[in-house]
């Protein structure tokens, strides 16, 4: 009995079995991805027409297109990433160049890690209280953008830090030895060298911001825009929120799938772009 069990679990067999099981599970994960993509793109892409992308929504989104929603999404996202970039890159520069590992860096890192773990609904509550109510911005592109800035901050800090660390130390040493000040060296040598890596963080942040719903719905509102937003104090609906409303309220299956297709396609391309940029960048210094 024991011998048979042992033979059955002989290393070779265990090896084959493990390979089979693990690869099958990998296949399951990839299968899920393919299922989602096929489902969303398969049903949505054929409704994504030029008119859909360039027309105003009509009748609660039952008809018409998504132009102001796309514009609103881009504005919220751009504002979020633009506001987060100086904070994130500045943090990373400080961590990499201006301090030694110690209590302070531990606190800063812990702050960033915790921020990364804060659920988006909490960001939504926070943005709602601080920006919409306390600062009186109302449901607006500005309120949503700033909320998203805080959400994407940890991603930016992490990728920027990795990017800065990836640049060989000699780059900065050479610049310093030529008489440049530290800040000059950072600005003229380190940042340009690390730029592609930092860009990855920006791209990832954009991807995360576009896909966000819970934080945006409380800060930009869910009002369906009837024109292209003209100022940052206007409310908007982002693509994710629009999709959420269409899908959940059963307003229009076709337009829901089309919106989802635009959303998924955009984010997938963005994430692929980030992945490729990062790989190129890391390979350069390897």
């Amino acid at each position: 009995m024991n011998a048979r069990a042992q033979r059955w679990l002989a290393p070779r067999r265990a090896q084959a079995l493990a390979r089979f099981v693990l690869w099958s599970l990998m296949a399951v994960a990839i299968g899920i991805l393919i299922l989602i993509l096929a489902f969303v793109l398969g049903r949505g892409l054929r409704h994504v027409t030029w008119t859909f992308l360039t027309a105003m929504p009509l009748d609660s989104g039952r008809a018409g297109g998504v132009l102001p929603i796309v514009v609103g999404t881009l504005e919220v996202t751009a504002l979020g990433v633009a506001a987060a970039t100086p904070l994130g890159v500045g943090t990373a520069i400080y961590l990499v160049e201006y301090t030694r590992e110690g209590r302070l860096t531990r606190i800063i890192r812990f702050g960033a890690e915790c921020l990364a773990g804060v659920p988006s609904i909490i960001f939504g509550l926070f943005g709602f209280v601080l920006f919409v109510l306390t600062l009186g911005l109302g449901w607006s592109i500005l309120a949503a953008g700033l909320t998203l800035a805080f959400m994407t901050l940890p991603t930016l800090i992490r990728t920027s830090e990795e990017a800065l660390r990836a640049v060989p130390a000699r780059y900065l040493d050479v610049s310093l030895s030529l008489g440049a000040t530290k800040w000059q060296s950072i600005r003229k040598v380190l940042l340009p060298a690390a730029f592609p890596g930092i860009l990855t963080g920006l791209i990832l942040g954009i991807g995360r911001a576009i896909g966000e719903t819970a934080a945006v719905i409380f800060t930009a509102g869910s009002s369906l825009p009837h024109r292209i937003p003209r100022s940052l104090s206007e409310g908007t609906r982002t693509l994710s929120v629009h999709f959420y409303q269409l899908a959940r309220e059963g307003i229009s299956a076709d337009n829901a799938y089309a919106t989802a297709a635009v959303l998924v396609l955009a984010i997938s391309l963005i994430n692929l772009g980030a992945y490729v940029t990062l790989n190129r960048f890391m390979r350069r210094y390897r």
Partner: peptide
């Protein structure tokens, strides 16, 4: 690896819809 990156990027509303 990039496939997993794409999985990570799919918005939660799309998961909910699925």
């Amino acid at each position: 690896k990039p496939a997993i990156e794409i999985l990570a990027g799919i918005p939660s509303v799309v998961y909910g819809f699925m």
